[in-house]
């Protein structure tokens, strides 16, 4: 997609949901339509962004100074290079408009590179990483707010290939949406709407998600809800009219290591 201020853009919509200023009226209108459809979406965006902050600080406390961030969107409002100005960061997104705009935001900062590629074309991202991190492969990797937009094949290949490629001791932080095996009609409608917008959400249960993370080793505290990471009471439920006995949908955050 070209940079076109007359068309809503996913990165700018997300920025608006987080309360940012990097958006046009078309983005705000599109965001408000999403909020009407899913009133909890703003909270979901915040929980995700807070988890990114928690993740980057946790990884930095462990001494990581090289970050490969997949599906970065707009690096505004306290993104990785702002949280850790001393780190080397490689951002990525497949959306041309997001990448062009993000590069202007970052400006001339040799520590930070923004690479345009689909995660499905991981080799091109890894080639950039090899260059930017000067051959050092012990990395902190972030996949926040994207795992549920990747189909089973891409998700599993990505996690497998990242594992093979990076050095032992590397860690990866991922946020997930877990959905029930048998979504209720309201949730099915919601998933159908996302598909119609061209961004299908891949519904997986926690048990199914756990299959994808091998060969990575899950770190403490394991599969934890984003609400728990963020010490928020209650959970983030996107199928608001869930029936008694329906399995609950929620967002989770995990850390994994290559042992």
């Amino acid at each position: 997609m070209e940079f076109d201020p007359s068309q809503p853009n996913a990165g700018r919509i997300y920025d608006y949901l987080l309360g940012g200023s990097h958006n046009f009226a078309v983005d705000r209108m599109a965001a408000e339509r999403l909020v009407q459809m899913i009133p909890t979406i703003e909270n979901g965006a915040r929980l995700n962004r807070w988890f990114l902050d928690i993740a980057v600080n946790r990884l930095a406390d462990l001494g990581f100074n090289r970050y490969l961030d997949l599906a970065s969107g707009l690096p505004t409002q306290g993104y990785i290079h702002e949280i850790r100005p001393d780190a080397l960061v490689l951002y990525n997104d497949y959306d041309q408009a997001t990448v062009a705009y993000a590069r202007e935001i970052i400006g001339n900062n040799p520590r930070v590179i923004y690479h345009q590629a689909n995660i499905a074309e991981l080799e091109s991202i890894l080639a950039q990483a090899e260059q930017h991190f000067a051959g050092e492969r012990k990395l902190a990797i972030c996949m926040i707010g994207v795992s549920y937009f990747l189909n089973d094949q891409v998700l599993s290949q990505t996690l497998q290939r990242l594992y093979e490629w990076c050095a032992p001791g590397s860690q990866i932080a991922i946020s997930w949406i877990a959905l029930p095996e048998n979504p209720n009609p309201k949730l099915q409608e919601l998933l159908a709407r996302y598909s119609a917008m061209g961004s299908p959400i891949y519904a997986r249960t926690v048990e199914q998600i756990k299959q994808f993370i091998a060969p990575w080793t899950l770190l403490e505290p394991g599969f934890q809800r984003l609400s728990e990471w963020n010490e928020i009471d209650g959970t983030w439920v996107i199928d608001g009219d869930r029936q008694e006995g329906d399995e609950q949908s929620d967002m989770y955050g995990t850390f994994m290591i290559k042992g």
Partner: peptide, 14 residues
Amino acid sequence: RANSLHNAGTLPPP
């Protein structure tokens, strides 16, 4: 804590 969702994306409740 009760108002944490009104805070910025840069301020996780912990």
